[in-house]
Amino acid sequence: MHITGNTVFIPGATSGIGLALALRLHDRGNTVIVGGRRTELLDRITAEHPGLHAVRIDTTDPDSIRIAAEQVLTEHPELNVLIPMAGIMRAEDWTTPDGFLATAEETVTTNLLGPIRLIGAFIEHLRSRPDATIVTVSSGLAFAPLRITPTYNATKAAIHMLSESIRLQLADTSVRVVELEPPAVRTDLMPGHAENETAMPLADFIDEVVQLIESHPEATEIQVETVKFLRYGEARGDYPQVVAALNQHDPHGK
């Protein structure tokens, strides 16, 4: 993926990593469309950042995805980058169905079905572009589990393998598949996350991501240095130690 000259749609870009990345890509000369559920929030973002575009979308709703895709492609037929960013991360207690089942189902719908449906809505158009990119968003937790978020971990592991698989299918097309693998970043993804001093500051994360995209445009995985502790534990042979370190400060742990 090249750092500039793109038309980029980022569903789930009204806060956190999604919004920060949208603003940085906009600053680097890309046309950026942010997507989210709350029209008042989208209106505020576009008012505060002239030149940024917005489309209402609920990535848990197939009809909303279809309608938003039609709007994006009508208004921005040059679209060549899709970044399905929307996601939720919630604690679960798997010792009882009441402690996890509803949350698990919602997490799968948002974190896995959402990106699959979004790619399905845009893949035909992206294949028609001479140079297109799908940027999936997994997590360091795709490679080492956090005890309190089993379904989040599982959906991100699924996104990793989905990325690997569709990259193979699209190898002979104009569409590249790039996987962004964030570590813990100071956002509001979970309560207390933004104040977590062990997490990476958001601005530092975006700085490093943009630098990696610019310096390695052919990369298939975007990995800031911090996430490599989780990403390569199994390959290094210290996976048990990685899991133990990841969960040692878990207040819900045993």
Rank of each mutant, 00 (worst) to 15 (best):
T110G: 10
T74A: 14
L23S: 11
A184C: 01
V34H: 01
A244M: 14
E181S: 06
H249Q: 14
H252Q: 11
D43S: 14
H26Y: 07
N30E: 11
G16Q: 02
F122I: 07
E92C: 06
G18V: 00
P62F: 00
P145L: 15
R236E: 12
G35H: 00
N196E: 15
E92K: 04
D58E: 08
S64R: 14
M200Q: 12
R127D: 12
E221S: 12
V209N: 00
G5F: 12
H125V: 13
A158I: 01
P50W: 11
S139R: 09
G29K: 07
V185W: 00
S165E: 07
L52E: 07
F229Q: 05
S128Q: 13
V224W: 01
A69P: 02
D238I: 11
A91Q: 15
P150G: 15
F9P: 00
L101Y: 13
A154M: 13
F9I: 01
N6S: 06
L246A: 03
G18N: 00
L141Y: 08
I10Y: 02
D204E: 14
R117L: 13
N30C: 13
P11E: 07
A20V: 04
A171V: 10
D58V: 07
Y239V: 04
M85C: 10
T96Y: 10
E48A: 13
I119G: 09
T4P: 03
I206N: 03
I67V: 15
F229I: 06
P182G: 01
H216E: 10
P251Y: 12
I206Y: 05
L126R: 09
E179G: 04
D58T: 03
D93T: 13
L189R: 08
G51H: 12
T95Q: 05
R44T: 15
L146E: 10
E214H: 12
T39C: 13
L170D: 01
R90L: 10
A245F: 12
A13I: 00
D188A: 09
A86P: 03
N30D: 10
L170Q: 04
I33R: 01
D58K: 12
E195Q: 09
G99M: 02
T107I: 04
E195P: 02
T109S: 12
L19Y: 00
A22L: 08
I3Y: 03
R129H: 11
A132Q: 06
K228Y: 03
S215G: 06
D93W: 11
R186V: 08
Y232C: 12
D204I: 08
L189V: 15
G120H: 13
G237W: 05
Q71S: 07
T14A: 11
P62G: 00
T46C: 11
M161Y: 14
V72A: 07
E40A: 07
L126A: 04
E78N: 05
P182T: 03
T4K: 05
I65K: 15
P251G: 11
L73H: 07
H26D: 06
V243I: 05
T4W: 05
N30P: 06
I83H: 00
D250M: 14
M85S: 12
R147V: 09
T136Q: 14
E218D: 15
A158G: 00
L141C: 13
V55W: 03
A171T: 09
N111L: 02
N6W: 05
T133I: 10
P77T: 12
L82I: 01
K156G: 01
P115Q: 09
P97D: 04
I88V: 11
T39Q: 15
G253L: 07
